[in-house]
Design a protein around this nucleic acid. Structure first.
Length: 497
RNA sequence: GGCGCCGUAGCCAAGUGGUAAGGCAGAGGUCUGCAAAACCUCCAUCACCGGUUCGACUCCGGUCGGCGCCUCCA
């Protein structure tokens, strides 16, 4: 089996062959920390997380870099509006990003370089480009990249023959007068008063200023993979599909003009958009949903991850409550099977159960190796869950093959529910005598005790064949948000919904 | 206007030139005091119109509809 990945550069699925196996360098464009990242941003990060986990599960040693863009127009504007320095303003959004990433179970990158910490390598890169004659200083003091002097420009986006739409966006940038060609992009922006005010300006041989967005990624990626792997070409460079042009196109121009390599990455991967109400999330449409919003609505990370895994990363996905509900139920079901298996002692499994494990392992790997076909991988998992439940009902035992295949698949996808607070009540010894109020305590700990008490009383009532009382208590608990469920062996469980 | 993506059951969503995975919802069963869970069964001919082919949902052309990018938006 070989891992095959879609490469935007060639527009086709190719065998994945890293430069220095088993090492893999993975550079993913991170957030601009001027605001809370929304779930559209996170769809891309989640796709990259699954990619990373599958690479590692396949035996690769991944070096993952995700940059944090902490200096650009938006962060500077935000800092100015808040009356803070750039550094102070940005830190809260970096913290928030870390929290949100943890909530969504994103594996931390090995390095999170911040643009402002890599100004020196950026300046060096600009100097190199100036020396090579592909960059020039404009009349406004900024430094630009001359795409006319880089013949390969446009090969990733295939927009090389494009024509600028007349009046697109009504943009007539002042700095265009400083460019030799309207399509040239800025490497280094001459410092303005606004930049100085928030501490977003640095001295450089070619003039005081700040780095352009595209420059950040090239300089940081080259610096880091050079130090860690001794290479100047990335194995995988990933990001959202909107970064194809101009961001990644410009990165290629800068990096390759500097290194002389034919490409900056061996594989370019781009995740499709997540839309809300059919359109891209944007302030203009007011359809932004952040990871924090989901967390506040108590949406489990497993649900979110399962929802995204049902759609292939290169297909657009519209986020709806209906789809979220479906994902929640699916996640619950998979979690229930996992819980059943977890309660059983480890040991040799039945032949049938082990066969299910072998099928799962094979189908899951085939699906993932096929350009991360998570919908099919998920189908394999659901089939294994159904078979597993059936065999468990028949009294058969799962063995190491099943457990290993299940752990690998669920570990890569991370779609199981976060364990909820729940209690198992023994079949005997349930106390029906303690004093219990029907009023629901507001304090979480007290409420937990309360629910446990009532659940015990219900079990006792049930054992006394007082079904009316048992059902009444179940209703009471349900109203308070606790589910009660009887098991086959006479025990019962209460769990917070 | 240029470049690109997409249109599969009530909803979400894979897929192959030879008669459509999986999930959610729904219906009927088994089990159960009941409920829940679990399991079993049922539920589409793939936007439209042409063409290529023994045969297309899958290839080609067109139409309609939706979406993205076109200089700093994942």
């Amino acid at each position: 089996m070989t891992l095959r990945l879609y490469n935007t550069m060639t527009r086709s699925v190719e065998d994945f062959v890293p430069l220095k196996a088993p090492h893999v360098s993975l550079y993913t464009c991170g957030p601009t920390v001027y605001n809370y990242a929304h779930i559209g941003n996170f769809r891309t990060f989640l796709f990259e997380d699954v990619l990373r986990r599958w690479l590692e599960a396949s035996g690769y040693d991944v070096f993952h870099v995700m940059n944090l863009t902490d200096v650009d127009d938006k962060t500077i504007r935000g800092a100015a509006a808040a009356g803070a320095s750039l550094a102070d303003h940005v830190v809260r959004f970096i913290d928030a990003f870390r929290e949100d990433s943890g909530y969504l179970r994103l594996l931390p990158a090995h390095v999170y370089p911040r643009a402002t910490e890599y100004v020196a390598p950026m300046i060096a890169l600009v100097e190199s480009l100036l020396a090579k004659g592909v960059a020039y200083k404009g009349d406004d003091g900024s430094v630009y990249f001359a795409i006319g002097r880089f013949p390969a420009y446009g090969k990733l986006s295939r927009l090389d023959t494009r024509e600028l739409q007349a009046g697109a966006g009504g943009r007539t940038l002042a700095d265009e007068y400083a460019k030799e060609d309207a399509r040239d992009f800025v490497l280094w922006k001459a410092a303005r008063e606004d930049d100085e005010a928030v501490g977003a300006a640095w001295d450089a041989p070619f003039g005081r200023g700040r780095p352009g967005w595209h420059l950040e990624c090239s300089a940081m990626a080259l610096d880091l993979i050079g130090k860690h792997l001794g290479t100047d070409v990335l194995d995988i460079h990933a990001g959202g599909i909107d970064l194809v042009f101009p961001h990644h196109e410009d990165e290629i121009a800068q990096s390759c003009a500097h290194t002389g390599q034919p490409d900056f990455a061996r594989v370019w991967m781009h995740g499709e958009f997540l839309t809300m109400a059919g359109t891209k999330m944007s302030k203009r449409f007011g359809n932004i949903l952040t990871a924090r919003d989901l967390r506040e609505e108590k949406v489990d990370a497993g649900t979110v991850r399962l929802l995204l895994a049902t759609t292939h990363y290169r297909a657009p996905l519209d986020f709806t409550d209906q789809a979220l509900d479906a994902a929640r139920e699916g996640s619950r079901r998979l979690g229930a099977l996992a819980a059943r298996v977890a309660t059983l002692p480890e040991g040799a499994g039945s032949a049938a159960f082990e066969a299910v494990g072998a099928t799962l392992a094979a189908d899951f790997a085939t699906a993932m190796d096929d350009d991360l076909n998570t919908p099919r991988a998920l189908a394999a998992l659901f089939e294994a869950a159904r078979e597993g439940n059936r065999l468990l009902d028949a009294g058969e035992q799962p063995g190491p093959a099943f457990r290993a295949a299940w752990a690998k698949a669920t570990g890569v996808l991370q779609i199981l529910p976060t364990p909820a607070a729940g209690f198992q009540l023994p079949a005997t010894g349930a106390s029906a005598n303690q004093e219990l109020s029907e009023a629901v305590p507001t304090d979480p700990a007290a409420q937990q005790e309360w629910a446990l008490g009532w659940a015990g009383r219900r079990l006792a009532a049930k054992q006394g064949r007082n079904f009316a009382e048992a059902d009444r208590i179940r209703g009471l608990l349900a109203d308070a948000g606790w589910d009660v469920r009887d098991n086959r062996d006479g025990t019962a469980e209460v769990q917070r919904r």
